[in-house]
């Protein structure tokens, strides 16, 4: 049977091709999922499921440039499923708000994710080493702020306030960088 060049490319997509595309857009997909889900555990669960589906369906993707919007649609519906199953656990937004956030989040371009990542990398440079460590600590210690506060002999609230101030500085800096660029 005759195949167009495009169809030939689609059918030849290997694991390596898929991994390359997935890794390229993983951060954006995680950010999109985080906007719809209440915590990182949920994001991890959904991304696992979504990545399996993406792998199974990758040959339906017409064009590699369309990976991110295509991936977001898959993530979106896995998020709905997850929230439906776990809706009794913890405080989550209503399905009405989630749908609006998903619509608006789907419009965020690949370029914006990249620019914001680069701006953050650059803005972390304005922090002192201990400040930078503190800003990144919640992700390395899996949110063990209470423990960090205890170890540092400060109140949990004081540590959150300090983190809040540091993140304000980062937000201001990122806005400035984005305006400059």
């Amino acid at each position: 049977m005759w195949m167009s060049k495009e169809e030939e490319n689609k059918s030849k997509r290997t694991e390596v091709d898929f991994m390359r595309m997935f890794l390229k857009h993983e951060n954006a997909l995680r950010a999109f999922a985080r906007s719809l889900l209440p915590d990182w555990d949920a994001v991890d669960d959904v991304l696992q499921d979504a990545s399996v589906i993406m792998w199974q369906k990758v040959n339906q993707l017409d064009d590699e440039d369309g990976f991110l919007p295509w991936g977001k649609v898959i993530v979106r519906f896995r998020c709905y499923k997850y929230l439906e199953q776990k809706k009794k656990k913890g405080a989550v937004f209503s399905s009405e708000l989630i749908a609006i956030l998903a619509d608006e989040g789907e419009k965020t371009s690949e370029a914006e994710y990249t620019q914001r990542f680069k701006a953050l990398e650059s803005c972390l440079g304005i922090l002192s080493d201990p400040e930078r460590e503190l800003v990144l600590a919640p992700y390395l210690y899996h949110g063990r702020i209470k423990e960090l506060a205890k170890l540092g002999r400060v109140t949990e609230n004081a540590l959150y306030k300090k983190l809040g101030r540091l993140r304000n500085r980062l937000r201001l800096c990122i806005s400035e960088r984005l305006v400059q660029s």
Partner: peptide, 20 residues
């Protein structure tokens, strides 16, 4: 505010990614 929220989700994800 929704736009701010989506930006916050990106910041959160990027910090997580850089930390790891």
């Amino acid at each position: 505010l929704r736009e701010l929220y989506l930006q916050e989700a990106i910041l959160e994800t990027n910090l997580n990614s850089i930390a790891l």
